[in-house]
Structure formats: structure tokens, C-alpha cells
């Protein structure tokens, strides 16, 4: 079993760093062999993005558990998703932390040693709990915006008549397809919202091709997110990718509806 401890220095007598992302070092300790390695933290001195780099560092070093002073909840989630347990509130030196961790560990280690008989490992239960907890959190994260969208649709269904909508989506497949992609390109939020909006638009008589290009563009094209994508991946890349995705939304929507027409599902 490997543990990673955020550290202010590169020795066992160094103090545990309070902030995980910005710690000077990450100490990687192999509890089975006793090997200790001090890895310089690429995120030190940074503010944003440091946490993600800490996650990557822990994953690439094969850590099972990360011990630190503090780690923000968003990054904790990344660890959990990566199957790494994160323990916060740790203080003292690295050596003390290792000892304390070993003291609470024996039962679990013994269980692992007894596993040779082929029984299910005890840690599996923990894995299930973590996966369920993380799934619940992911679902809860989706809900506020989803509820709001549903409330807006309720409003929309009551206030906007089919006539108004028909004035926008005229039934011309080419124009509808283009308009659908345009509306879908503004935001990029969870795709679930585009399904709900798209589904309700369908009920109002908007053509399937418009709804399809809307659903595709919703996730693949994001004008509001464009500045963030440009700074992360380069202006040229971001603009090209969004432009190509916009074209692809129109083409894929057209092809999808054509295929469905061929199968006779949509008249």
C-alpha cells in the first residue's frame, strides 16, 4: 500500500504542508517495502490548477491514500473519482503522520494478508461506499441547474404558445437545423438539460432535426466557455474546435434524422 503526504520539505522530519495543491513536496511512502520518495510538487506556488496537478501526481505515483492538512472539496472529489482516499486535518511531521497512519492500519493490513485464501477484500465495502457517495454528489451537483431548467420549461409551456415557436422554427429543415445548433451553442452545461429542453420542444412541434442539432451543440460548442478553452488550449485550437463542432452538429443532426427516416421510425 502506498500513501502520499503533502510536505513542506523533502525529509521525514519535515512538517506536513497545510495546503495540498501548493505544498513544496509530496512524500510517497510504500508501507510494504518502507521506501520513501520525495517528489517535487509541480503545483507549488500556483493558485488555480494546483489541486488537479496534485491529483495527477498522486495517481501517477500509485498512491492509495493521500494525507494532508486541507484539500478543497472539488479536489477531494477528483481524488475519490480516481479511487484515492483523502484524509485531511493532518498536522505534525511526516514521520509522525506515517506512524499514526500505521497505528490505525494494522487491522486492515492483516485482513489484506489473510486474503490469500481468495476471500473478498475488506476494502471492497469501502470502495462501494465511496462510489455511491461520489455518485450521489455528482447527481446533486446536476440538480440545481436541472430543477431551474425544468421550472423555466414549466413557465415556457404556459406562456409561450405553439404559434410563437412556429414563428421561430418554421419547419424548413435547413433553417431549423441551423437555428437549433445556434441555440445549443451558447452555453455548455450538463447534457441532461439539453435533453429536457429538447424533449419539451419536440412536444411543442419543433422539428426533430432542430432539436437534435440543439442537443449536440449544447455540449460540444460553448461560446460562453470559449475564453476559458482558448486560454487552456490555445486560441486557434479552441476557435477551430468550436467551429468544426458547430458544423458537425448540423451534419450529424441531418444524418441522424435521415437514418431514422430510412428506418421508418420518424415520418
Amino acid at each position: 500500500m502506498k500513501i502520499a503526504i503533502s510536505s513542506a520539505g523533502s525529509t521525514l522530519s519535515s512538517n506536513v504542508a497545510r495546503q495540498l495543491g501548493t505544498a513544496e513536496y509530496m512524500m510517497i511512502i510504500d508501507l510494504d517495502t518502507g521506501d520513501v520518495e520525495a517528489v517535487s510538487n509541480p503545483g507549488k506556488g500556483q493558485q488555480r490548477g494546483a489541486g488537479i496537478q496534485a491529483v495527477m501526481l498522486a495517481i501517477s505515483n500509485g498512491a492509495d491514500t493521500v494525507l494532508t492538512g486541507y484539500c478543497n472539496p472539488a479536489i477531494s472529489r477528483q481524488f475519490e473519482t480516481g479511487g484515492i482516499e483523502i484524509v485531511t486535518g493532518i498536522s505534525g511531521t511526516v514521520a509522525e503522520t506515517i506512524q499514526n497512519f500505521k497505528d490505525i492500519l494494522p487491522k486492515e493490513t492483516d485482513a489484506n494478508l489473510d486474503r490469500s485464501a481468495g476471500e473478498a477484500p475488506k476494502t471492497d465495502k469501502k470502495k462501494y461506499i465511496n462510489a455511491a457517495r461520489s455518485a450521489l454528489r455528482q447527481l446533486i451537483n446536476i440538480l440545481p441547474v436541472m430543477f431551474s431548467i425544468v421550472l423555466l420549461i414549466g413557465l415556457f409551456n404556459t406562456l409561450i404558445s405553439k404559434k410563437i415557436l412556429a414563428g421561430i422554427f418554421s419547419g424548413n429543415p435547413l433553417i431549423d437545423n441551423f437555428l437549433g445548433a445556434c441555440f445549443g451553442s451558447i452555453f455548455t452545461t450538463n447534457p441532461i438539460n439539453s435533453y429536457i429542453i429538447g424533449g419539451e420542444l419536440l412536444k411543442h412541434g419543433v422539428s426533430l432535426v432542430a432539436v437534435t442539432s440543439f442537443v449536440i451543440a449544447w455540449v460540444t460548442v460553448g461560446l460562453i466557455q470559449l475564453p476559458a478553452e482558448m486560454t487552456a488550449l490555445g486560441r486557434r485550437f479552441a476557435v477551430l474546435r468550436n467551429f468544426l463542432s458547430f458544423l458537425s452538429a448540423i451534419i450529424v443532426a441531418f444524418l441522424t434524422v435521415s437514418v431514422l427516416n430510412l428506418t421508418g421510425i420518424v415520418s
Partner: peptide
């Protein structure tokens, strides 16, 4: 999973 901004770094 998660919002896109978390993936950019």
C-alpha cells in the same frame, strides 16, 4: 464527469 472548467487544467 464534472463541469468542463475542471478539466481544462
Amino acid at each position: 464527469v464534472g463541469p468542463i472548467y475542471a478539466w481544462y487544467p
